[in-house]
């Protein structure tokens, strides 16, 4: 079973590294590149660089609240 753990760990690190490099490139390097360079085609418009993390954080918050509420309801129903 340790191979499954290693695979999950590898997948997590790969996802986090790729997200970090993409986001760093998007936010820091791309504004200093000319507007007619070909690399701009691989990146979304810059407003999304704010919208996507804020949206993801909000979705995470909603999910946490819903999960806590669900667990509270389930424990109260079992006690009654």
């Amino acid at each position: 079973m340790e191979l499954a753990d290693k695979a999950v760990g590898f997948l997590l690190s790969y996802i986090s590294l790729s997200v970090f490099t993409y986001y760093t490139f998007w936010v820091i390097i791309l504004p200093f590149v000319n507007s007619d360079h070909f690399i701009h085609r691989y990146f979304l418009p810059q407003e999304f660089a704010i919208l996507i993390p804020v949206f993801a954080g909000m979705v995470l918050l909603c999910f946490l609240c819903i999960f806590i509420g669900y667990v509270m309801l389930k424990s109260k129903k079992k006690k009654a």
């Binding site: 753990d5 290693k6 999950v8 760990g9 590898f10 997948l11 997590l12 690190s13 790969y14 996802i15 986090s16 590294l17 997200v19 970090f20 986001y23 760093t24 936010v27 820091i28 993390p53 954080g57």
Partner: peptide, 19 residues
């Protein structure tokens, strides 16, 4: 950007610890 990079760093540490 700093918040996103902090989240990425945490995820990376979890992955490395799992490995």
């Amino acid at each position: 950007y700093f918040v996103v990079s902090l989240g990425c760093y945490g995820l990376l540490m979890v992955g490395v610890g799992l490995i």
